[in-house]
Amino acid sequence: MTQLIWNGLFVGSFYALIALGYSMVYGIIKLLNFAHGDIYMVGAFIGFAVLSSVGVIPASMSITALLIVLLLTMIITGGIGVGIEYLAYRPLRNSPRLAVLITAVGASFTLEYGVSAIAGPNPKVFPVRLEGESFDFLGARISAPQIVLMVIAVVLMLSLNSYIQRTSMGRAMRAIALDPKGALLMGVNVNKIITWTFFIGSALAGAAGVMAGAYYGKIDFLMGFIIGLKAFTAAVIGGIGNIKGAMLGGLLLGLLEAFGSQWLGGQWRDVFTFGVLIAFLTLKPTGLLGERVTERV
């Protein structure tokens, strides 16, 4: 039981990190960034490329090396996110939503198969593996790497939250989310803020990618697809557009999946997850923490 809870929370923290990017972008420009899950995959591959080009890293240094790679990857994936926004989304800012969604699908395709064309379709083995002792805690078996990753995830989420709540940039983001035109009139540089939002969201997804690579050890070019869907589900459960909701939704979805696959069997887990998504959207489309959004005409 405690093991299930722990497993759920651990997987959920990955969902939460990715869901944050979905939620931020959606909150600000009401765009469903379909390519977001693939940024996670690109992050894992960038981490892989950087680490393999460095060569052999002594085991004692692996945590430090990983943190440096994490930062580097976050910057690069952030840049990629900004690039996608600039090329694929910005020209369509005033177009119908359908058009933007389709470019998002196109961007997702380009990233997935672009990586497969560059790195090859085979799964890759991550050069650095987080290894560590496991110990029992209240009947759950917890390993040291899991603790490290959870701490990194929580630190990233908390700093994002205080960034959005405390800084002027964060205030500008919230202002745009509330009313883009009003924010523009009040002197907020909307384009700059949107670029910055994409940067932060993509950087978080990239970080999650590196962490997943280092923990699980295997990466492949389609790894972002399903997790992107799950992260979106998490964002919806928490209330899309709401930062705290995304975190809550991620953890909750992790727990739901852990228990769902226990009850129904592993092969039904994804069916269960998407069933939950549909149930939520039908019964409580605002999610747990979301506010009622009226579409302005």
Partner: peptide, 10 residues
């Protein structure tokens, strides 16, 4: 299990 995932903790 579902092929192509990373987490098989369940």
């Amino acid at each position: 299990v579902t092929a192509g995932e990373s987490d098989y903790s369940s």
